[in-house]
């Protein structure tokens, strides 16, 4: 499904601020894999998601989706088959536009945009149906401007937007980190529900270790631009957060340092 082969990404190359964000990283995902990614500060988790999405070009290696090399395609071309949810709820939606207008754009992801009306009657029905999943009452507020919604509502809407056009790959970059605990839980449950329903292949960066072990079928841990742990199957099922921390220290030779992670556990 997704193949990241020996990818290296260097920021500020040849500059005093040079930073190697990914060091020959390889990762293979089977269809339907839901992989959670954890790691210390600056481990390269977000960079990994961003190079897959095409936000930054890579310096070495290749990225394939369903066997097709995509690493030379610009971001907006790759976006046709990649759904994304960012950490900041403001990034995933257009505030000055209504809920239905945002959904209309998401529905047409990757298609040529024409002079058809964005929000016809049929589409509205689909939007209502999708929004009902949230249980937030947004299905009755289709013409409300998104800027009037709370952060949690916006993020929930973004999850719907990222998945409404059936992407091949879903990228979640700490998408519940900026929400209060209760809303975060709701948004996460919704995400899991949609992933299961649409059988989406997913990469999810999280700062919550407990969450990392509970959600999905596989967990990888990153450190200094590499994958240092890859846990799945039975081994993962019986694992506790403390085991994970111990494994990290053994694999990296360092204590685990992620401010937010330590604060949240």
């Amino acid at each position: 499904m997704l193949d990241v082969n020996n990818v290296t990404k260097i920021f500020n190359r040849g500059n005093i601020n040079e930073k190697v964000a990914l060091t020959g990283l390889s990762l293979h995902l089977d269809p339907g894999d839901v992989v959670t990614i954890i790691g210390s500060n600056g481990a390269g988790k977000s960079t990994l998601l961003n190079v897959v999405a095409g936000v930054f070009p890579i310096d070495k290696g290749e990225i394939l989706i369903e066997g097709r090399a995509v690493h030379k395609e610009p971001e907006h071309v790759r976006a046709a088959y990649i759904g994304r949810v960012f950490q900041d709820p403001n990034l995933g939606t257009a505030a000055s536009m209504t809920i239905e207008e945002n959904l209309a754009l998401a529905l047409r992801r990757g298609n040529r945009l024409g002079l058809r009306r964005g929000t016809g009657k049929k589409r509205r029905e689909l939007f209502r149906e999708r929004l009902k999943l949230l249980g937030l009452g947004l299905e009755d507020r289709l013409t409300t401007k998104v800027g009037l919604l709370s952060g949690g509502q916006r993020q929930a809407l973004t999850v719907i937007m990222a998945t409404i056009a059936a992407p091949k790959l879903l990228l979640l970059d700490e998408h519940t980190a900026a929400l209060d605990p209760k809303t975060a839980q709701t948004v996460l449950e919704l995400t899991e529900q949609v992933i299961a329903q649409e059988q989406l292949t997913t990469l999810m960066v999280t700062h919550n270790m407990e969450q990392a072990l509970r959600v999905g079928n596989r967990t990888i841990m990153m450190h200094e631009g590499r994958i240092i742990l890859d846990i799945k199957g039975a081994k993962r099922q019986n694992m506790k957060v403390s085991d994970l921390l111990q494994m990290f220290e053994k694999a990296s030779g360092k204590t685990f340092a992620n401010d937010r992670m330590l604060l949240s556990n």
């Binding site: 999405a53 610009p74 971001e75 907006h76 071309v77 976006a79 046709a80 994304r84 960012f86 403001n90 990034l91 995933g92 939606t93 257009a94 505030a95 000055s96 536009m97 207008e101 945002n102 209309a104 754009l105 998401a106 047409r108 992801r109 990757g110 298609n111 945009l113 024409g114 002079l115 058809r116 009306r117 964005g118 929000t119 937007m161």
Partner: peptide
């Protein structure tokens, strides 16, 4: 026009460029 798909994309470009690019639109 501003309510057609293309029109919506133009409005979204001014509102949130990152978002509309992540939805596959060439801004």
């Amino acid at each position: 026009f501003l309510q057609t798909e293309l029109g919506l994309a133009i409005r979204a470009t001014g509102d949130n460029e990152q978002m509309i690019r992540s939805l596959g639109v060439n801004t």
